[in-house]
């Protein structure tokens, strides 16, 4: 989905650099990377291992300090120069960003419902409200029949849907996915991608996924190719 003129980007990464170490041990993980992702878009971050994909995802997820540049999320500048402009990054993540993981990372001692409700309760929702919303999301993602199941008893596809439901719980407008289909077969990977697209469109969200999965590359609106920390946009 191309960006419409006049619509503000949900994620704006502007000339962000990140290096680790100094002097001879210095490694430039990102060099002047700039990207914009708009509502309704599903974009991929591609590149070989060590190219900086995960570093960029961590920067956008506000869990890694950039060395320089600026970062805007949902119209708010959260990082500029060398410092975060928001004191409570945990709250920022809770309110604005949803995470989807390669191995779903569901909390193993919580049921599917509790995994989703937990995020809502962390944001301050009452237990009953959180449970209702969790059931709605699980139904929406067509895993409502597994709401009482423990993660260990879910199939890979079911677990990933529960993980997506958890990522959507607080209605974040930015969803970051780390290899969301790597642990799934082609059929289930396609279903998950369809779900993510549906979420992006229906919830007007931006989805940024790090992936190596060639079988789903044609399902992204844009693909950003990273090599040695430098971005080469590959539409």
């Amino acid at each position: 989905m191309p960006a419409s003129p006049g619509i503000a980007p949900l994620v704006k990464v502007d000339r962000v650099s990140k290096h680790f170490g100094e002097g001879e041990t210095r490694v430039d993980a990102l060099r002047d990377v700039s990207i914009e992702v708009f509502p309704g878009q599903v974009v991929a971050l591609l590149g070989p291992s060590g190219s900086g994909k995960t570093t960029l995802l961590n920067v956008i997820g506000c869990i890694l300090d950039p060395s320089s540049g600026s970062l805007d999320l949902d119209g708010e500048t959260v990082f500029r120069g060398h410092r975060w402009l928001r004191a409570d990054l945990r709250r920022l993540r809770l309110d604005k960003i949803g995470f989807i993981f390669q191995f779903h990372n569901l909390i193993p001692f919580l049921t599917a419902t509790e995994n989703v409700a937990l995020v809502l309760q962390l944001a301050g929702a009452e237990a009953d409200t959180a449970r209702r919303r969790a059931h709605e999301l699980l139904d929406y993602l067509e895993v409502g029949h597994r709401k009482s199941a423990m993660p260990a008893n879910l199939s890979g596809g079911e677990a990933q849907r529960v993980a997506i439901a958890r990522a959507l719980a607080n209605r974040p407008r930015i969803i970051l996915a780390d290899e969301p289909t790597a642990a799934l077969d082609s059929q289930r990977a396609a279903i998950v991608m369809d779900l993510m697209r549906r979420v992006a469109v229906e919830q007007d969200a931006a989805i940024i996924a790090v992936t190596h999965d060639e079988k789903i590359l044609d399902r992204f609106d844009r693909r950003f190719q990273l090599r040695d920390g430098v971005l080469a946009d590959s539409p």
Binding site: G61, I63, R90, R91, R93, L94, F99, I107, L118
Partner: peptide, 16 residues
């Protein structure tokens, strides 16, 4: 540790 990292990432405060 992995679960704790996930909890932190999804916004759980340290006190939780």
């Amino acid at each position: 540790l992995k679960q704790i990292a996930t909890l932190k990432l999804i916004g759980a405060p340290d006190r939780t």
